[in-house]
């Protein structure tokens, strides 16, 4: 690398992370729809087929179950496949292969067979797309034993977390916040920011804790700035890992602020936010000054995109939750 720190969009940081992983280990291969010649519909894999060849960057037939099912076989042979599912809503044809096969293989073979498979999923809204292109299905996978689930919110995390996910001997669901693909941020090529499964404090505060993953982290930072202008000191945590969840920093923050608001684009019912609320109630009950609140997408299908801004939690809705929390 020419410079140790570079300003990159998240998509290009991922591209650099994939390139680094492939250069390090020739068992790493990429597979998915349109990822070779085209470089992926979001160009995350741009240039990699030219660099590493068609045996390491595979334009697959258009079949998600086939992509994941053959990745399982490749992993049995000793490869470390990184699958791209083109859009969040297209992952369900592969649901059996992910949840019944990939997730369980290590357990059902008593550890004899590992599944170092990464499944990259561009997810979430804010891009004005049609049905099945803006969903946040991460809870299905966090609910499944045997899968690790992570989601970077910054280019730097994207660069490092994709490499750590590929190094993991477990299957990792890698949810990429597609609305954050384009904004640039600093990427430090010299050292990793934090372990793959660490929750990170991204803004310190004393009055209330906000927690999110992926694209919602930037929404929380906006809300925190507005709240600060109004005299409320907000702590913001970036969850980064949805399975396992690193509860230590969450509990510590709640012990300090006494208030927690969990935010996500996904529907709130039986969600990652629900799990965090329940666990914090169990582990930090006497620290809480108010109930844990959830700010979520609604429990409807993702709406027509002309009204998606009313579905997706924004800074105003987070500020409203801060007011409700402080009112206790």
């Amino acid at each position: 690398m020419a410079a140790s720190v570079e300003e990159l969009p998240l998509a290009k940081a991922l591209n650099a992370g994939l390139r680094a992983a492939m250069a390090t280990d020739d068992r790493v291969l990429l597979m998915g729809e349109d990822i070779g010649t085209l470089g992926g519909v979001f160009r995350v894999t741009e240039g990699l087929q030219d660099e590493f060849g068609k045996k390491r960057v595979l334009d697959t037939p258009l079949a998600e179950s086939g992509i994941v099912g053959t990745a399982i076989g490749l992993a049995m042979r000793g490869y470390r496949p990184v699958c791209e599912i083109q859009f969040d809503g297209f992952i369900f044809p592969a649901f059996d292969q992910i949840t019944s096969q990939l997730a369980k293989m290590t357990n059902r073979t008593s550890g004899a067979v590992h599944m170092p498979v990464v499944i990259r999923v561009p997810y979430g809204g804010h891009i004005g797309a049609v049905e099945h292109h803006q969903e946040s299905p991460e809870a299905y996978f966090a609910h499944t034993a045997g899968l690790r689930v992570v989601s970077p919110s910054t280019p730097n995390d994207a660069y490092w977390m994709i490499q750590e996910a590929i190094r993991s001997d477990d299957p990792v669901m890698f949810f990429e916040p597609k609305s954050r693909y384009w904004p640039k941020g600093p990427v430090d090529f010299t050292s990793s920011a934090a372990p793959l499964h660490a929750t990170r404090v991204v803004r310190t505060g004393t009055d209330v804790t906000l927690l999110a993953h992926g694209a919602m982290v930037s929404t929380l930072l906006q809300a925190a700035q507005v709240a600060a202008d109004e005299g409320v000191s907000v702590e913001v945590l970036d969850l980064r890992s949805l399975s396992p969840i690193d509860f230590g920093p969450i509990i510590s923050s709640v012990e300090k602020t006494g208030r927690l608001i969990v935010c996500q684009e996904a529907p709130g019912f039986v969600s990652v936010g629900s799990e965090i609320a329940a666990t914090v109630a169990e582990r930090a009950f006497f620290s809480l000054q108010s109930p844990v609140l959830r700010v979520s997408g609604f429990d409807t299908p993702y709406p027509a995109s002309k009204i998606e801004t009313f579905y997706l939690p924004d800074a105003d809705r987070v500020l409203d939750a801060i007011d409700r929390s402080l009112a206790y």
């Binding site: 179950s65 086939g66 994941v68 099912g69 076989g73 992993a75 059996d96 292969q97 096969q101 059902r108």
Partner: peptide
């Protein structure tokens, strides 16, 4: 390989494995 109870799932594993053999 191990028995597979979800009907047909193993055909994809076999194909992926065979892709690896070729690679």
């Amino acid at each position: 390989r191990n028995y597979t109870l979800v009907i047909g799932s193993q055909t994809l594993h076999a194909t992926g494995y065979a892709m690896g053999v070729a690679f």
